[in-house]
Amino acid sequence: MPEKLRAIGRAPKRLLVYRAAAPCAGGKRHPLELLARGQPFVAYAVHPETDRPCEWPEDSLVELPLSRLPVVDEACCAAFLDAAWQLVPDEVRVNSILADAPTSTWRGPSDPNPRRLG
C-alpha cells in the first residue's frame, strides 16, 4: 500500500512527495507549485523563517522505499494543481492573467495544453 509522505517547513505550507510514472513537466499556479523533472526541494534543513527543522509527520523520506510512494502521472498532477488552486482564497492568488486561467501554467514538451507553448 502506498504511503502518504509530506513535509512541513512553515505551516500551513507543505510538501507532498509522489513518484512519477514517467518524467513530466512541473507547473505553478501561485501560491501552488508542482516540482518535477529534477527540480530540487530541501527535505532536511532548518527553515529560515521558523528557525525549526522541516517536519515529516508520517514517515521520513530517507526511510521510506521509493516503491512505497504513490505513483502519479502528468495528467493527474495537472488536475490536482488546478483543483487545489480553486481552493486558494482570492486574496492569496496572484492578480494576473495566468492566475485567472482555467488551466495550470505547465511548460515543456509534455505540456498537456500545447497551445501555450512557443
Rank of each mutant, 00 (worst) to 15 (best):
M1A: 09
M1R: 14
P2V: 10
E3D: 09
R6L: 10
R6A: 04
A7F: 03
I8Y: 11
R10N: 11
A11H: 09
A11M: 12
K13P: 00
V17S: 01
Y18F: 15
A20W: 01
A22L: 02
P23H: 10
A25H: 12
G26F: 02
G26V: 00
G27Q: 08
G27C: 03
K28I: 09
H30D: 09
P31S: 12
L34Y: 02
L34R: 02
L35A: 05
L35N: 07
A36W: 00
Q39N: 09
P40A: 14
V42E: 15
Y44E: 11
V46W: 08
V46P: 07
V46Q: 09
H47V: 03
E49C: 08
E49I: 11
T50E: 03
T50G: 05
R52C: 08
C54Y: 15
C54V: 15
E55M: 11
W56A: 03
P57E: 01
P57Q: 04
P57L: 13
V62H: 12
E63F: 01
L66W: 09
S67K: 12
R68H: 13
P70Q: 03
V71T: 13
V72E: 08
D73H: 08
D73A: 06
E74P: 08
C76K: 11
C76V: 12
F80Q: 12
L81V: 09
L81F: 08
D82I: 13
A83C: 07
A83W: 02
W85G: 00
W85F: 14
W85Q: 06
W85S: 07
W85T: 08
Q86I: 01
L87D: 10
D90N: 10
D90Y: 02
D90Q: 12
E91C: 07
R93A: 01
V94S: 03
V94K: 06
I97W: 03
I97R: 14
L98M: 15
L98H: 15
L98F: 11
A101H: 10
A101T: 08
A101R: 08
T103W: 10
S104K: 02
T105E: 07
T105Y: 06
R107F: 13
G108K: 03
P109R: 05
P109M: 02
S110M: 09
P112Y: 02
P112R: 06
N113I: 05
R115N: 14
R115W: 13
R115C: 11
R115I: 08
L117M: 15
L117Q: 14
G118L: 03
